[in-house]
Computed example of a mutant assay.
Amino acid sequence: MARILPIIILLWFFTDLYFFQAVLTLSPPPIYLWAYWMLDGIVMAFLAGIAFLKIGSEAQQRLIPWLMGCMLLLFIPRLFSLPILLVEDITRLFRGFPSRNVYVSEFVLFFASILFLIILFGITRGRHFYRVRRETIYFPDLPEAFDGFTITQITDVHSGSFTNAAGVQKGLDLVNAQKSDIILFTGDLVNNRASEMDRWIPAFSKLAAPLGKFSILGNHDYGDYVQWESPEIKRENLARLKLIHSEIGFRLLLDESVTITKDGQSIVLLGVENWGARGGFQQYGDLKKATLGVPDDAFKILMSHDPSHWEGVTLHHQQAIQLTLSGHTHGMQFGIDFLGFKWSPIQYFYKQWAGLYENAGKYLYVNRGFGFLGLKGRIGMWPEVAVITLKRKQRN
């Protein structure tokens, strides 16, 4: 972080100086101008201090989320206001650079204030502003008994980030309220340590579905992002986490399959360990092992935490896998997701990052996540409970 700190500071102050022109146009009292720069100074001082803390230390992990929230509150409204000021400057260039228009500056400050309030909501209430997202997917090879079969998917709980029991319970109640046939959890139950889940076991154990609850591991579940006293303690942590899955009533699938039967017909549920195409993420998952002994003509649903596994492995697998369910991206917990339009910076890193995708009749659904990590909130990318309905499509 120390390497990119100068870049962050330069970008921060360039944005501030440009936005500050609109503030000056309105001739505010001097105390407001002092406050404007004092807030910047405080945030930059904290950023410099955190950058030189030990990486992964408890102090750094505790302070970074709060710093991220403050930076977003101050930076994003200014950044998104810059295009308006830039357009005005282009027109001023052809008019001999007169003074800034007061009305334009007032509009910029109004626009920035709206963005400020949205971000403030996101980092204070957005973390538990759960949304139910529904998708109906049609398959010609879906067994008749599963026509109308419902799946509730949650992912990326990150229980180590939770502090508000009532907020978490609101999300869990929403899961049960869907009354789906099956509940699937697609990884990252904790941030790093199995003990993070201890206080939440009673609440999560009350999730219920008539045909069962199934889960897989995500990249954070392996404990790869913290320093352990010894390899043995790290292995014990993972073993404990696996037990917790059973304690909350979930069947953990580790590169294996299970058959779901209904009215004499069946589908196959597959679960693989984490596999990520991007550098730094583990490739533990083994889809060949998971499909061992599974009939080629079986209708298959795959749980795979990282959506890059879909294009990296799943689409090219020797057996057709009709539906894959993933998470991992969180929608970056920041973006625009409104009336069918969605944008987030995460899309420049992951081709499939939120919602439903299709390729040659095979589908991937990427859940935006139930919990949060890093930033203690969600801005525009609200926490999600996904309900997927399978329908049988008549063959032509």
Rank of each mutant, 00 (worst) to 15 (best):
P202S: 05
A208D: 13
F204A: 02
G187P: 04
K242D: 10
S180Q: 00
I154Y: 02
N191I: 03
Q178P: 05
V175M: 08
V157F: 13
G271M: 03
P210H: 01
K289L: 14
L238I: 13
D224N: 15
L243F: 08
L238Q: 05
H220W: 09
K262Q: 09
L269P: 00
K234D: 04
Y225C: 10
I260Q: 08
H220T: 11
E247F: 12
L254E: 14
Q169L: 13
R251T: 13
R199V: 10
D173E: 14
L287E: 07
G167S: 07
E273Y: 00
G160S: 08
A239W: 08
T163Y: 13
D221A: 10
V157P: 02
H220M: 11
K179I: 07
K262M: 01
G212C: 07
E247A: 14
A277F: 06
R278P: 03
H245F: 15
G218T: 08
E256Y: 05
K213F: 04
I233T: 13
V268W: 00
T186K: 01
T186G: 02
G167K: 08
F204K: 01
S215T: 05
I201P: 02
V168N: 01
I151E: 03
G271N: 04
K262R: 15
L243H: 11
V226C: 06
A209L: 10
A290H: 01
L287D: 06
A239N: 13
V268A: 01
G167D: 09
I183K: 02
D188Y: 00
E232N: 11
L252H: 11
L270R: 03
N164R: 14
S266N: 12
E247G: 09
N219E: 11
T259Y: 03
R193K: 14
T291E: 14
I260L: 15
R199F: 12
T152L: 06
G167H: 10
H220I: 12
D224G: 14
Q265N: 08
S159E: 05
K242C: 11
S230F: 06
V272A: 00
S161V: 10
T259G: 02
W275V: 00
S257C: 09
L184A: 02
I182N: 00
N274L: 06
F250H: 00
A277W: 04
S215W: 00
L252N: 09
G276L: 09
R240A: 13
N274T: 06
R199Q: 15
L211C: 05
F250K: 00
E256H: 06
T155K: 03
K288Y: 09
L287R: 05
D156A: 01
D263T: 05
Q265S: 08
L207A: 08
E236V: 03
I233Y: 06
T155H: 06
K213D: 07
K289S: 10
R199L: 11
H220Y: 11
L172G: 02
F281L: 13
E229R: 13
G212R: 00
I267E: 00
D255G: 05
I183T: 10
G280K: 09
A177K: 13
A277E: 15
L269I: 02
R251Q: 14
D221E: 10
G276M: 07
S230T: 14
Q178T: 15
V157S: 13
Q227F: 11
V190Y: 01
D181T: 05
T261V: 15
Q282C: 07
S257D: 08
